[in-house]
Design a binder for these strands. Structure first.
Length: 423
RNA sequence: GGAGAGAUGGCAGAGUGGUCUAUUGCGGCGGUCUUGAAAACCGUUGACCUUCACGGGUCCGGGGGUUCGAAUCCCUCUCUCUCCGCCA
């Protein structure tokens, strides 16, 4: 969430920047500011009343000690009156704060100044591309046929045991999964990230912390009996490690890498987008997370972008990087790069990673801060990205590397798979 | 699942109704001494809201209550630990 201070100091900036995300903030900002004013004056009045009540209580104690109990009586009455008054004030304050908060969380994060204006994915800016689109010929099969041909991923079995979108990986398919996970984790570790293995279920507070709740509840699987949610990404448990944490300046940056299963209900998805491995309810992903000082976060974003690029290059897949336009960005992001690999048989670009700087938007909600040597606290900047999500990488590897003899494994991965071809 | 104990500042750990403005130690920071460091000694030490400022207020796991006054008493929830049981 945005800081109310910013709204107070520069409401016009907020309104102008949010136009880039096609968000009309005027009315909301105005309401918030007027509630904020009421909140502050109520707070001041309540503080004064409490201070008075505290003074009286102290002198009552003094009188008892001096044996002047009778004189204390009328003071007791007075204090009791003040007490009822503050109780009402406190209720008002709670209500106003809650109302204000409900409005503040409706404001998206401000996009970075470099974010292109636009409505949809068509307006995204291609900032980098690499690799040749392979000619796999007219006989090329899409991955959902290849997995059957080589019997490496079984959707029907998943349907039987669980349901749609929960496939079984089998034989070389399972080994390829395991190899990719290890490859991504090791590359992350080499780049200075600390590996974590997080819980796959989180409590409600954590789901709020990263913004899945309250509005994206329908996208998560839940375990209502225990009040848990299955994580849609490792970002949730990993980022929540740092909820309510104040770092010492010298303990930053934090760089974490984590593999996890991800569970997404994907309610409302349909069509060619969801065919085969393109969209699953359970999938595997390696996630990188950074926590940075404010002035370093954009440099960190570029670092992460380079890291993800190097992964895809080592897998020898043709890819491009797009900078998302205002209309295509997520609610919480200030700047996002999407990575898309080309799927030769489907003849389309598949999103395999999304790397974002959230600046202080998540940190403000989570109260994640760092203390400078001078003793001042600042909100940290948080960043995360997939490095990488497996299913679409697997789809692209299968489709792009199909040959008459089988599917070849890129060199960088052979050490991990233990085989060079799926046949 | 059964029984018991507990939750206090970065950490350890006192405090059972009124100078708590939370004792003390460790750690951190600053200083004295030293060529430098260690030791010793001295000082200092959290978060949040509000105020131009002085200041005021809130916070002892969360919520509620009793009282003029609550870290302290009562209710409730959550979590942790120990022992037993079960178990990869």
């Amino acid at each position: 969430m945005l800081q109310v201070n910013l709204l107070r100091e520069n409401p016009q900036l907020v309104i102008d920047r949010l136009k880039v995300k096609n968000f009309r903030a005027e009315e909301l900002v105005e309401k918030i500011l007027s509630l904020d004013e009421v909140r502050r004056s109520t707070q001041t009045k309540m503080d004064e009343t409490l201070a008075e009540a505290n003074r009286i209580a102290k002198s009552v104690g003094q009188m008892y000690k001096e044996g002047k109990a009778s004189e204390a009586e009328h003071l007791k009455e007075q204090s009791a009156m003040l007490k009822t008054k503050t109780r009402d004030m406190n209720e008002d304050l709670d209500r106003i704060t809650r109302e204000m908060n409900d409005l503040v969380v409706q404001l998206p994060n401000l996009p970075h100044v470099s974010v292109p204006v636009g409505r949809s994915a068509e307006d995204n800016e291609i900032v980098f591309s690499h690799g040749q689109i392979p000619d796999v010929g007219e006989q090329a099969l899409p991955h959902w046929d290849l997995i059957k041909k080589y019997n490496i991923i079984d959707f029907d079995l998943g349907n039987k045991v669980t349901g749609a979108g929960f496939p079984f990986y089998r034989g070389k398919g399972a080994r390829l999964q395991r190899a990719l996970i290890n490859f991504f984790l090791n590359e992350g570790i080499s780049a200075g990230y600390l590996e974590y293995q997080p819980p796959l279920l989180v409590n409600e507070a954590s789901a709020y912390g990263t913004g899945q709740l309250p509005d994206k509840e329908g996208q998560m699987y839940g375990v209502p009996v225990d009040g848990f949610y299955l994580i849609p990404t490792a970002e949730v448990p990993i980022t929540n490690i740092y909820r309510d944490v104040i770092f010492r300046e010298e303990d930053l940056p934090v760089k974490n890498v984590a593999y996890s299963n991800c569970f997404r209900r994907e309610a409302g998805s349909w069509g060619a987008d969801v065919r085969g491995l393109n969209r699953l309810h359970q999938f595997d992903k390696v996630e990188i997370v950074q926590i940075r000082k404010q002035e370093e976060s954009y440099q960190a974003l570029e670092e992460m972008r380079d890291h993800v690029s190097s992964l895809i290059q080592k897998l020898e897949l043709p890819f491009r990087i797009v900078k998302l336009c205002g209309g295509d960005m997520s609610f919480t992001s200030a700047l996002t790069y999407d990575f898309e690999v080309f799927s030769a048989a489907q003849k389309r670009w598949l999103e395999v990673s999304s790397v974002s700087n959230f600046e202080s938007f998540q940190a403000n909600r989570m109260k994640l801060r760092y203390k400078t040597k001078e003793g001042k606290n600042f909100l940290a900047h948080t960043l995360n990205g997939s490095a990488l999500a497996l299913p679409r990488i697997v789809a692209a590897l299968l489709e792009n590397n199909q040959t008459g003899k089988g599917i070849t494994i890129p060199k960088a991965l052979v050490g991990y798979t233990g085989f060079e071809i799926i046949d």
